[in-house]
């Protein structure tokens, strides 16, 4: 399966007894019930439900590893650290110790687990792709490039950080409905997302469009034949 470099990724280690509960209380997916060896994606949102960052949470037993994005890290830390208060949560940035890749084109029946193979940690977060984290210097064959990856994403209608997953949109608009848990309880942005879901008014949606006929203003990932766009249905 093709592997592409994941250049904007970052990695933080979250330690402390309250780490999982803390992430759960600030993001859209249910994280609190994660067990050791599981990987799950979630989205940190503002009070207006706009995306701050999508992260992959790795439950590594003795700590929680959170893979996010370097370009969003400052904003995310400004969002979360004032809310630690008296809770037992410590965050360490270990981005520079690791390289990041995405293996895609998969058809995984089961996902949500962590696997370690030849020094690389795989987070099988979706039926279509896995996040790969390798200690610096660990060999990894990169067999694809961003253009091919984008072309694959367009055909599968998979949103990605920086293209569809940006601060302009809320998770429901950019194809991340599966990461918005419908019954997990309160988190920042929950009121807005729940209101949209319960009233059936999600506004814009992520769709695949024909590049030649689509309104260029709404295209988020441009392909030769088809593109991804976020637009009103």
């Amino acid at each position: 399966m093709p592997v592409v470099a994941y250049s904007d990724a970052c990695l933080m280690v979250w330690n402390g007894l309250d780490a999982l509960k803390f992430i759960d209380g600030l993001s859209t997916n249910k994280i609190i019930d994660m067990k050791s060896g599981e990987a799950r994606q979630t989205v940190f949102t503002t009070s207006k439900a706009k995306i701050i960052d999508i992260v992959t949470v790795f439950h590594m037993n003795s700590f929680i590893a959170v893979q996010g994005h370097q370009s969003k890290m400052d904003q995310l830390m400004r969002h979360v650290t004032p809310r630690i208060l008296d809770q037992d949560v410590q965050i360490t940035d270990v981005t520079l110790r690791n390289d990041f890749y995405v293996r895609y084109g998969l058809e995984q029946q089961e996902f949500g687990s962590i696997e370690s193979l030849e020094g690389i940690t795989y987070g099988h977060v979706s039926s279509f792709y896995s996040i790969m984290i390798a200690s610096k210097g660990t060999p990894c064959d990169v067999t694809s490039n961003l253009t091919e990856f984008d072309q694959w994403r367009i055909e599968q209608i998979i949103p990605w950080h920086g293209s569809e997953i940006t601060e302009k949109y809320h998770p429901l608009a950019c194809g991340l409905k599966s990461l918005v848990h419908p019954a997990k309880g309160c988190y920042i942005g929950q009121e807005v997302l729940t209101r949209m879901s319960s009233r059936g008014k999600q506004g814009k949606l992520l769709v695949k469009v024909e590049t030649s006929t689509a309104d260029q203003r709404f295209i988020t990932t441009l392909g030769e034949v088809n593109s991804l766009a976020i637009t009103r249905p």
Partner: peptide, 15 residues
Amino acid sequence: MDCGTCETAGPIQVM
């Protein structure tokens, strides 16, 4: 994955 927990990776500045 290098978690840095056995060495001295710097903690993020908490506000």
